[in-house]
Amino acid sequence: MSTEPPIGSCLSGLLLLVAGLLFPDFAWAKSCTPPENTAAIKVNLVEGNLAYNTAEPLKMLTRRMRRNEDAGVKSIYSFGLTSVEWRSKADMQLAGMPVGAASYCWYVTEISMTIETHSTIFLAKEIARDSCIWREVMNHEQKHVKLNRILFGRLKDDLKPKIAAVAEGGIETSDGDAAMAVFRPKIEKTIDTVLEKFSAAREKRHRAEIDTEAEYDRVDAACTETEWDAIYRRAGLK
């Protein structure tokens, strides 16, 4: 039987927009043209401490990884798993510039977004600590952790210009909530689209660069068949 330490799973990002309506000193304007060229877009990545879980049995890790695959496949088992849970929150501020007796030119001044990640490496409990298989599977999973850090670190560079592009312009109305109702959906949609594409591309990169047949063969061949057989026996698979 071959070993196949899988890639990490991902939770969909959660977006929350909160409006702060700011009224500057009274000044008349001839048209609804924001005084600033672009909104300030801030994206902050917060990485939680890497956690480890060695309490789950081999069969459970395999079911966790393959819950959407053919349950009849019995020959491939997941000895390790890297899971990254992540969520995002964005706060948006609008400013209102008077353009009439009862009308304002509303525009986005700032969007501050935080992306939080929490990663966990799972190793099957049947693997003896500090054994050859322990070291090899851990090494494999650490590759996933490293690649995740690189990819999430680059995410802000993709988000910032796309958010800035849909946050441009002004909305003339007496009601700040009405202006928010115009800006909010298109900014939410842009963020959701970027995160969805990122999620798909992230998984593709993990499969292409780490979860390769050559890597599985390397892990499989690194340790003795006696050690692999002992794990299968402890897991009740032999």
Rank of each mutant, 00 (worst) to 15 (best):
S2E: 04
G8C: 09
G8Y: 07
L11W: 13
L14C: 10
L16N: 04
G20S: 12
L22Y: 06
D25N: 14
D25P: 15
A27Q: 15
A29E: 12
K30T: 07
K30S: 11
S31C: 10
P35F: 00
E36G: 07
N37R: 12
N37G: 14
N37D: 15
T38F: 06
I41M: 01
V43R: 11
N44T: 15
E47L: 14
N49S: 08
Y52F: 15
M60I: 11
M60S: 11
M60Y: 10
L61P: 09
T62F: 02
R64F: 14
M65L: 08
R67V: 11
R67S: 11
R67E: 09
D70F: 12
I76N: 01
Y77D: 11
V84C: 13
V84H: 07
A90N: 07
Q93P: 05
L94R: 02
A95T: 10
M97E: 07
A102M: 10
A102V: 12
S103G: 05
W106Q: 00
S112E: 13
T114K: 06
T117K: 08
S119V: 05
L123T: 00
A124M: 03
K125N: 14
K125H: 10
A128L: 13
D130V: 11
S131G: 02
S131D: 00
V137N: 03
K143D: 07
V145R: 11
K146S: 14
N148D: 15
R149H: 13
R149T: 04
L151P: 07
G153H: 13
R154E: 15
R154Q: 14
R154H: 11
L155N: 07
L155D: 04
D157S: 10
D158F: 02
K160C: 14
K160H: 09
P161C: 05
P161M: 08
A165G: 02
G170S: 09
E172L: 04
T173D: 03
T173L: 00
M180T: 04
V182N: 09
F183C: 06
R184K: 15
P185M: 10
I187C: 02
K189V: 02
T190W: 00
T190Q: 05
T190M: 05
D192H: 14
V194D: 00
E196A: 08
K197E: 03
F198I: 01
A200P: 00
R202E: 12
E203C: 05
H206T: 01
R207C: 04
A214G: 05
E215R: 04
Y216M: 06
T224N: 02
E225C: 12
A230V: 01
I231M: 05
R233D: 05
R234V: 01
L237V: 14
L237D: 10
